[in-house]
């Protein structure tokens, strides 16, 4: 089945979202939608509000105006002031621009945290380490090992993440997000600071996730080559406003986008 044919209905819709910090307007009246199974890129110059947009979607920031609507289990949920752990419960997972791994824990434990929402045993059962608690640890360990295989990080599973090189850390972070089996995956510059080879690997992982698990992906990326290659549709932000929205080909020809990137005399 071709990628285009899989893309389905809208699963996330951002409606007229505005966000400001004190006097700084990070986002102004931004609206766009994301369809099921697609790879949606958000691009824009530095300070355009891209990360803020992701932060709004998964509840790290709460917008002053506007709403986010998410289709979960066939029903629409509308929210503007949800906490990020509630967003996680709705099936949104993400990675961060500056790696946000748990530095003091091993790779395995980091990825296991991605399964926390699926564990039911109470802390008392865990303390005694019997029955449900023990079964769950094993069951989720198996699931996590599959992700470890998928991300090709078997050799470092017992290494504390703080000791890993940057490229591997990025991979572990993606693995942790995948462990949650998200419906919607938000990636904040997954390829920033990588060399060509690492970028290619990461592109492959992102596309594989999209293909194999059918995960809908929203990603921020600066590398235009990557964006044009892997995304189905692109949103362009500049100074907190949306200035373009469409397929990579449409964006490539959009005058406002070209101006924003190259700069024009106003």
């Amino acid at each position: 089945m071709s990628r285009e044919a899989r893309i389905g209905e809208t699963v996330l819709s951002v409606e007229k979202v505005s966000l400001s910090f004190g006097g700084v307007k990070a986002l102004q009246d931004v609206s766009f939608d994301v369809r099921e199974h697609e790879v949606r890129a958000i691009i824009g110059p530095n300070g355009a509000g891209k990360s803020s947009m992701l932060n709004v979607i998964n509840g790290v920031y709460h917008p002053q105006q506007g709403t986010i609507r998410l289709r979960a289990n066939g029903a629409w949920k509308e929210f503007s002031d949800m906490d990020s752990h509630e967003a996680a419960a709705l099936g949104i997972a993400r990675t961060f621009q500056n790696i946000a791994l748990f530095k003091g824990m091993t790779v395995l434990d980091n990825i296991m945290t991605g399964r926390n929402l699926k564990m039911r045993a109470s802390f008392l059962e865990q303390a005694i380490w019997i029955g449900r608690a023990r079964r769950e640890e094993l069951k989720h360990r198996r699931a996590v090992e599959e992700i470890i295989d998928f991300m090709e990080i078997q050799h470092i599973r017992k290494t504390p993440v703080g000791r890993l090189p940057y490229g591997l850390q990025k991979r572990v972070e993606l693995a942790r997000a995948l462990a949650a089996e998200p419906r919607l995956l938000l990636l904040d510059e997954p390829m920033a600071g990588m060399n060509m080879e690492e970028k290619q690997d990461m592109c492959r992982f992102v596309l594989d996730v999209n293909d194999q698990y059918g995960t809908t992906i929203v990603l921020i990326e600066h590398d235009m080559g990557v964006v044009m290659d892997i995304s189905d549709r692109v949103v362009v932000l500049d100074y907190g406003r949306k200035i373009g929205d469409g397929t990579p080909e449409e964006i490539r020809g959009n005058q406002a986008v070209i101006d924003a990137y190259l700069g024009v005399a106003h």
Binding site: S84, H85, A88, R94, F96, A100, F102, K103, G114, N116
Partner: peptide
């Protein structure tokens, strides 16, 4: 280790 990331993972 990182409270924001912890909350984001649920």
């Amino acid at each position: 280790d990182m409270d924001v990331a912890a909350s984001v993972i649920g």
